[in-house]
């Protein structure tokens, strides 16, 4: 079972995402309050799946995705962005930064599950 890292500066959102993950059987979850904290957690605790917000202080979600993709060790970690930013240009920018999938807040547990499954399926296909 993959270890999830949930990155959001809102404590409320972290709790909601973590609960939604646990309801769906993803029990191994750690949290970070921004991109910088996420990098520290990845380096110290490791993670196999990153779910991140976009707008955050210190280091935002897009910068985090770019950091991951530029790191040979972590470039293949799946990244799912969950954000309020729903404009077409935002989604394109995120996809160019090579995030694996994109959810516009507010999300539903079912929507989250679907996107995680889609990402995992793509990653499995790639590694097969």
């Amino acid at each position: 079972m993959a270890k999830f890292l949930v990155v959001d500066d809102s404590l409320t959102m972290r709790r909601i995402v973590v609960n939604a993950l646990k309801t769906q059987g993803f029990d191994d979850v750690i949290e970070a309050c921004d991109g910088k904290d996420a990098v520290a957690k990845i380096l110290s605790e490791g993670a196999q799946f990153v779910i991140t917000d976009w707008n955050m202080p210190e280091m935002n979600g897009l910068e985090l995705a770019k950091w991951l993709r530029s790191s040979p060790q972590y470039e293949n970690i799946p990244v799912l962005m969950i954000t309020t930013r729903g404009n077409k240009d935002d989604v394109i920018e995120a996809m160019k930064a090579r995030v694996n999938n994109y959810i516009v807040k507010p999300f539903t547990p079912q929507g989250l599950k679907e996107k995680i499954e889609q990402v995992l399926k793509t990653v499995e296909l790639k590694s097969a």
């Binding site: 500066d9 707008n55 955050m56 935002n60 309020t84 930013r85 729903g86 516009v104």
Partner: peptide, 19 residues
């Protein structure tokens, strides 16, 4: 900024469909 100026709470799936 560390916030989205256009953040809004809506149940409409239009933006998710575009994404």
């Amino acid at each position: 900024p560390a916030f989205d100026v256009e953040a809004r709470y809506t149940r409409s799936e239009e933006r998710q469909d575009i994404a």
